[in-house]
Design a protein around this nucleic acid. Sequence first.
DNA 1: ATGTATTTATTCTACATTTACGAAAATTGA
DNA 2: TCAATTTTCGTAAATGTAGAATAAATACAT
Lengths: 110, 110
Amino acid sequence: MKGTHLGEFEELVLLIIGVLYPNAYGLAIKQEIADQTKRSPAIGAIHSALSRLEDKGFLKSHLADATHERGGRRKKLYEITASGKQAIEYNRSLRNTLWNQIPELAWKKL
Amino acid sequence: MKGTHLGEFEELVLLIIGVLYPNAYGLAIKQEIADQTKRSPAIGAIHSALSRLEDKGFLKSHLADATHERGGRRKKLYEITASGKQAIEYNRSLRNTLWNQIPELAWKKL
DNA sequence: ATGTATTTATTCTACATTTACGAAAATTGA
DNA sequence: TCAATTTTCGTAAATGTAGAATAAATACAT
């Protein structure tokens, strides 16, 4: 791949970050994916996707202030960039377009 | 991966096979992808996706009769199976669900 | 106040799966 | 056999998955 493409998992993470706005960080993303889908990715999977997504310019991040909860390192909060939005929108419209071109006949025998 | 997941490219191929019904085979798929998207995958990429998709049970195939054209090996025609349809439908509805949960605020600053 | 335990998070490292490419092999009609 | 398609194969690169290691912040005992 040319490094500019959005993988399946990457797209999911991007969408979840949107849903979680403005409180998207590693663990919260992991939990939200577990809640909304059938999968429970390991935390390492999330973070490697996040760093690739940031490299590609689809995400930006900043460190949050420390909270006053029990323990914890500072959270790294993520947001979608303009080009990230563009990427998921392109995927969305491409899929809709294709879907609409599938003839009814293709499902008839199922 | 657990062997049951649908990669990004695999999903695209599946959709294109629907669009091309009932004449989806390697080269035609490659050409249709080139026509409808920004990418031009090599023929080998198509065939490796096809064989994985068939292994996963999302596709079935059969050899077409020989044509009366100049030359050519017999085409291997592909069709989406019931579980293939189910897989793309699940992805579609999950993405729509997530998309609808993204607050407007998430885009405000772009 | 200082040090240690506990909690929450991110980083690091390794490996599996998917995607990509292009050359080679196979099959068919002329 | 030759030319035209099409699939198959071998290899490399990108993406996805996992869990242990590390870091940082608070709580608590001394």
